[in-house]
Nucleic acid binder design. Structure first.
Length: 303
DNA sequence: TGCCCCCTGCAG
DNA sequence: CTGCAGGGGGCA
């Protein structure tokens, strides 16, 4: 579920809360969600937390690393505990997280945040020196891996990633050339390809194409240099906005504090089927199926 | 370079 | 009950 802005939100939150803490023990209620040897990471201090594409990299002392991919429904939730160690009833959830749910009235019936951690969706949890970090994953597509730091970027997922959208290498010229190499693919499939540019997913691809005024169905062959230029700008713009609002919480995305992102209130087309276009055109947002994904666009603004 | 699949739960 | 969901791997 999470795309670059959601993953970035999680990385920033975790960086504030758990860097410097020690991993005392790793609990693994769902064996298939964890790869590698947990023992290698236990007893080590958390040094740095970064992101590559939609993947999370937690560097530990002694050249050990924990890799995490949230896939569709993964969450990383940190619950500080007064005394550290195992969670207690009292440690539960931060109060502000529960209040947030109540105030927004957007909680899911099965939302883990109406419960205490670990929840029934907790697949892996880290007992830290001053609290607990929970990896929850309803659909079990996500994973946690324990690897040597030198092997982290050799991991199959990380090794296949292309340029970061905020890297200076992601330019209109770069994108234009890449698009011309795929003349028969539609533009949405091209910008979703993680081996070209990383971090764009289904929400932000629809959003970026809207702001670039390009129909998602357009073939690579038809994309001009001006189109590419607008698209690069639009991609940076929507990802920046997503980060600013702590990501999109239409469904399961939460910050490490348990709060929802707010970007769902600012989407132009995604999840807005039949609603008026946010532009001046008075058109209605259409939803089609493209490459097997729900795809939203304004037929009047996007050509 | 497209399709089916992994899995769980909600909306219609 | 069927279809659909912020991802991506493995397979023609």
């Amino acid at each position: 579920m999470p795309e670059l802005p959601e993953v970035e939100t999680v990385v920033r939150g975790l960086s504030r809360h758990i860097v410097g803490q020690k991993i005392k023990h790793i609990h693994i209620p769902a064996k298939t969600s964890f790869k590698g040897t947990a023992k290698m990471a236990e007893g080590l201090k958390i040094k740095k937390i970064t992101r590559r594409g939609k993947g999370i990299i937690i560097d530990l002392a002694k050249d050990q690393t924990i890799l995490v991919h949230l896939k569709m429904t993964g969450q990383l939730i940190y619950v500080p505990s007064l005394r550290g160690g195992k969670p207690t009833k009292q440690s539960g959830l931060p109060r502000y997280a529960r209040n947030d749910e109540k105030r927004l009235n957007y909680g899911h019936p099965t939302d883990d945040f109406t419960n205490t951690m670990p929840s029934k969706h907790t697949r892996v949890w880290f007992e830290l020196s001053k609290g607990n970090l929970y990896f929850n994953d309803q659909r079990r597509f996500g994973w946690v891996k324990s690897v040597a730091t030198k092997d982290a970027l050799k991991d199959k997922f990380f090794a296949g990633l292309g340029v970061e959208p905020f890297d200076t290498k992601f330019t209109p010229a770069f994108l234009y050339v890449a698009i011309q190499r795929r003349p028969k693919s539609n533009i949405k499939a091209i910008i979703l390809d993680q081996s070209l540019v990383t971090g764009i997913g289904n929400i932000y691809s629809d959003e970026a194409l809207f702001y670039a005024r390009i129909r998602p169905t357009r073939l690579g062959r038809s994309i001009t240099k001006p189109d590419s230029t607008r698209l690069v700008g639009a991609i940076k713009k929507v990802l920046t906005k997503g980060i600013k609002y702590s990501g999109t919480s239409i469904n399961t995305h939460r910050t490490p504090e348990g709060s929802m992102g707010r970007m769902q209130g600012y989407l132009a087309v995604y999840d807005r089927k039949g609603l008026p276009c946010r532009g001046t055109c008075k058109g209605k947002v259409e939803k089609i199926r493209l490459n097997g994904r729900g795809t939203h666009f304004c037929p009047s603004c996007q050509k």
